[in-house]
């Protein structure tokens, strides 16, 4: 078997101490192959975003085993390893610094990592996400939600990562813009051979983007399925099935039958 891109084993994440302790993620394990796109689905409080933040190195309170390209992740990460994992956040209004131009947002990571062809790379990055040079000196408030998310994607890709973590990347966007951004993400994964972990509450988005997925509830994985199993409705767990029914729209009879999980 080839070396998995991401290995997660027995990952647990908790916040607080003593009786305030909240176990946000409990013993979660999964692996993602190079070039694969993996989905984490669940409702709020399921711990799906918490896993993503821990994987990105934004949350130090975890235990278990995590590795990227076979390199074990510890409390401190060397800069080179950090570069490999980048993230696209949910809220395009909160993830770009409101007082920085697109130019600064894209060039700062390059300066930090000592790239010398900043100019060319910034232009190429804008091109790659379909924005072009006219957007370079705009501030985030001069961009639409979709354009902001494209800038966020360009920023995530500018350090040439291997893994891109997508935290509900389109849930704040209009459906027509969502389609454009999802298509862009699909293309970029193919062109650059990226590995994705996509977090979403939207089964449709996950079915479209991912080949495998884990359905989560209150910090635990209730079911792991392939995208085919999801789209053919072959889910085993009652909670997963209820999620599936709920995503199909309003139906009085189905709602009356909802269980409490």
């Amino acid at each position: 078997m080839t070396q998995p891109m991401i290995e997660i084993e027995d990952l647990s994440i908790s916040f607080g101490l003593g009786k305030d302790r909240v176990d946000a993620v409990k013993n979660v394990s999964f692996t993602v192959a190079p070039g694969e796109s993996y989905g984490l689905v669940g409702e709020s409080g399921s711990g799906k975003s918490t896993i993503l933040r821990a994987l990105a190195g934004l949350n130090p309170f975890w235990s278990g085993h995590m590795a990227i390209t076979g390199q074990k992740l510890g409390a401190k990460r060397p800069r080179a390893l950090r570069r490999l994992v980048q993230m696209v956040f949910q809220d395009p209004f909160g993830s770009l610094h409101p007082k920085h131009t697109v130019d600064r947002i894209l060039s700062e990571p390059l300066t930090i990592h000592g790239f010398d062809d900043v100019e060319t790379r910034v232009r190429a990055a804008l091109d790659r996400v379909g924005l072009g040079p006219v957007f370079r000196f705009r501030y985030p408030h001069q961009l639409s939600g979709g354009q902001r998310q494209r800038v966020a994607i360009a920023r995530a890709l500018i350090l040439e990562p291997k893994v891109v973590l997508l935290d509900e990347p389109t849930s704040a966007l209009d459906v027509s813009i969502q389609a454009e951004v999802l298509n862009l993400l699909t293309d970029l994964r193919q062109q650059l051979g990226l590995t994705y972990v996509l977090v979403s509450h939207d089964l449709g988005v996950v079915a479209h983007m991912c080949s495998r997925l884990s359905i989560m509830r209150t910090g635990e994985v209730v079911e792991t399925a392939s995208a085919d199993e999801l789209s053919e409705g072959r889910l085993l767990h009652a909670y997963s099935r209820q999620l599936l029914i709920a995503s199909r729209g309003y139906d009085t009879a189905a709602i009356a039958a909802f269980g409490d999980f």
């Binding site: 934004l58 909160g94 007082k99 700062e108 990571p109 930090i112 350090l159």
Partner: peptide, 24 residues
């Protein structure tokens, strides 16, 4: 905020984040 998280992901040092991202 997410933009500070993004700065940390890009490898920015605490000082850079303080002066370039938080103080403004």
């Amino acid at each position: 905020t997410d933009f500070v998280a993004a700065a940390r992901l890009s490898g920015a040092s605490d000082l850079r984040i303080l002066i370039g991202h938080i103080m403004p």
